[in-house]
Design a protein around this nucleic acid. Structure first.
Lengths: 95, 95
DNA sequence: CATCATAGTCTCCTTTTGGTAAGTATAGAA
DNA sequence: TTCTATACTTACCAAAAGGAGACTATGATG
């Protein structure tokens, strides 16, 4: 999700990022961003102002991983219905 | 992993599958296979013999998901080194 | 008669995950 | 003087994940 949102919006601050990702706690978002920074997927720019300001932007590596995931996102969009149907059939059989 | 192994080998029995996937407990493999069956990603064929014989094979849907993931696998193979380097830099900075 | 093989299931237990809520720093606004 | 905004961190807690190992059925084999 972070990969997708940042690929779409370019550069974002923490709060905006959490709004766009949605359904994620502060803790998890912080943790995810730190891991991604550690992996070299994004850069974190801290502005030493009050209140704090921190911006996140994907690196080339991060962008390329986003592209690699595109195939999966497209697959999901195209096949979600089919998976849901398969589940109904399966659950019907089980019951 | 299951997706990859089954895409490579076509049709496999439980024990062989667990060997090829590696590092997975019986419990997790069973669970994973059931979920994938439920989602319509693979078909499970039970032969009513003793000892039991069960074969697993990807469906078209499963194969297509495997293909979709190819981009990620390729990315990982190509960029693993870069990620490792980024981690060393990051951890060095932190320490 | 005892053993083996296969594909599980079941129980128990530990580890991991991830949420909530509270705390932090400090400049500027009301 | 008190409140607000921002980007966290920390402590605590409940739920979920997932491993280990025992158990199951039963026909074939030694």
């Amino acid at each position: 999700m972070v990969l997708e949102v940042l690929a779409d919006h370019g550069e974002l601050r923490f709060t905006r990022l959490s709004e766009l990702v949605g359904g994620i706690s502060q803790k998890m978002l912080t943790q995810t961003l730190r891991h991604m920074e550690r992996d070299g997927l994004l850069v974190r720019t801290v502005f030493p102002v009050v209140p704090p300001k921190v911006q996140y932007r994907l690196t080339g590596l991060g962008l390329s991983l986003g592209s690699a995931f595109c195939g999966v996102w497209v697959w999901a969009a195209e096949n979600l219905r089919q998976v849901e149907q398969a589940r109904q059939v399966f659950d019907g059989k089980a019951a």
